[in-house]
Design a protein around this nucleic acid. Structure first.
Lengths: 342, 342
DNA sequence: ATGAAAGCGCTAACAG
DNA sequence: CTGTTAGCGCTTTCAT
């Protein structure tokens, strides 16, 4: 018996097999598949029939070797895959998948050595581009230290690059703070306190700065006269709420740096018998559903549209791959999600 | 001037360039790199020097085309990447990365069409194997519907395959329930209530069944005489705690199906002035830090070692790729994390 | 010990 | 319109 079609290596049909079955040469079979070039319709049909009969699918590696495009991008997460990077990652994967591009996942766990290692692997695999994302909004140093990096496009998502010549896609912290403040002011609050995370986090600093700036335009000031920096935790929210009520008992709203803090604040208020939102309104940040929805009452909060950040980063990367890069920092607007805490 | 080394396609040095610089043929250069075969040490050194000088790195695609191995595996998540799949994914990525294997991420969003599409892409890329993971512990139908799948190994992580001939790596729900019960019994509790998620979730059913079985061996029964199935939410935990205290006021411990429920229970107890763990102990499940630590008091809970599940799935896959598969369901033990709620 | 040559599966330029 | 040919970058016999 003659040997069955199928490579000795993969067991799958090759273009040679298709060509043989269709009674044409590989060259013709190839052209029939790539769609271009003129050829007799019935010949093309014979090839397509053979393809169907054999369940042929082109070997991506062979194609790439020839065309120089791997249809693959690297997704490098700098400090673990968590609550923030996951939606970004999914948004990116979604946008790329539509473009027939696959995603190589690399988690560096915040380790420089690991990062170098992963970058080298990605370049060895001839990825068409790289998306870098981290959990913080603080700017990070651009990728370096691996030869070949210069020749492929890189887009930074969520954590922008410190180099303005790079392409970064970030959340609009200013807009987020503004949405929160406008909402509180619109619902008649004027004695607003701000409780947030550590001052050394850009997210905390930026949101605070913009919140204050927006108040001053009213013109108003923070009810306690200052920003309460602390931790991104419920425990800090609880403690801070106590402190705020002691300092400024007439506070009528809390704008919190994240949903955990907001939930802590809400808990303290409830336990003190303060009605939320009747007496005091609470606004969080992140729209982390498990937090925002489990809170009593459920939290009004700011959604950073993380998936959209990932999606846009992917689109920018595709642009940079196919045409030209659009350097600079691209900002994705936030969304106010109103629930029962305001 | 002569043309600089580097392919017109990638701009990176090729083995040809290395060979030229070292004054040897490509064949020799290749052998020098693959390490094997005898050859004059100084020749090998000349090649290595050239490699260093040019910053040469082999083109992975070309290598794969020849060897038939892509050094790539597909990681298919069936219903979003979330709290459960992330650690599994990281554990797998870690184990695979050590073996010079990269991970292609595919999220199907629970959509069969998307799954088919992703599987086809993975096969086109000649992945060496596939890991399938989902957020539920319920068994899932094995991958099908794509030709070529038969020829590569697949390992199911967290959500086992319904086909016992497949290789699955799952959490030891029985052991988890046992750990919780033993701990409660050891600390002198005898009137234990069980509040958990929806009965149509295997995780809820299994943990409940094993908890009851373990109690019966004591011999004891549940304080309320039945399992309280509901939702995986804090709100359900709060409601259920009320119901339990009404039915069986002498209950001295709650074993909860997850940390959210446990936190809800703890909240209700605290608000009713019940001392935890003085009067009633609470044990959760999942060791979801943001929940378990934010709870008052912090929760004693069961950790499923998800990263370990991912790691083992990866190791099993590597085995199946390099040698033979070890079909069947592999169980990863849980870990009791004691905190202040018991 | 080294080089020449064939080929992995596919594409693209060029003949016929 | 179709077949032949020459690679993509690398590995691996097989001569030398």
């Amino acid at each position: 018996m003659t040997s069955a079609p199928g490579s000795p290596l993969t067991g799958r049909a090759r273009l040679t097999d298709v060509a043989a079955l269709a009674g044409v040469s590989v060259g013709t079979a190839s052209k029939a598949l790539s769609g271009g070039g003129r050829m007799r319709p019935e010949t093309r049909q014979r090839v397509l029939d053979a393809v169907a009969a054999l369940g042929f699918r082109p070997n991506q590696q062979a194609q790439s070797l020839h065309t120089g495009r791997s249809w693959t991008v690297g997704l490098v997460t700098t400090d673990g895959i968590g609550r923030f990077s996951t939606p970004v990652l999914l948004g990116a994967e979604d946008a790329l998948g539509a473009g027939k591009i696959s995603v190589l996942m690399c988690d560096t766990r915040g380790d420089a050595i690991r990062e170098q290692h992963h970058l080298r692997t990605l370049l060895d695999r001839r990825v068409d581009g790289i998306i870098v994302t981290g959990r913080r909004t603080d700017a990070r140093a651009p990728l370096t230290g691996v030869t070949g990096l210069e020749s492929i496009p890189v887009v930074y998502a969520l954590s922008p690059s410190t180099d303005p010549a790079d392409t970064s896609v970030v959340s609009d912290d200013q807009g987020g703070a503004r949405l929160a403040m406008e909402h509180l002011l619109a619902t008649g609050r004027t004695r607003i306190a701000h409780v947030t995370g550590p001052e050394h986090h850009a997210a905390a600093r930026d949101r605070a700065r913009h919140a204050v700036a927006h108040l001053q335009a009213a013109p108003l000031g923070l009810s306690t006269g200052r920003v309460h920096f602390g931790e991104w935790s419920e425990a800090w929210g609880r403690r801070a709420a106590d402190a705020v009520l002691r300092t400024a008992p007439d506070t009528d709203a809390f704008f919190c740096g994240n949903d955990q803090i907001a939930r802590g604040v809400a808990d303290t208020l409830r336990e003190r018998g303060v009605d939320v939102p009747g007496d005091i309104a609470v606004v969080g940040y992140d729209n982390w559903d498990t937090m925002a929805l489990a809170s009593r009452p459920p939290l009004t909060t700011i959604d950073m549209n993380l998936a959209e950040i990932g999606r846009i980063a992917a689109l920018r990367l595709l642009e940079a791959i196919d045409a030209d890069a659009t350097p600079g920092v691209h900002t994705v607007p936030c969304r106010l999600v109103v629930r029962e805490s305001t």
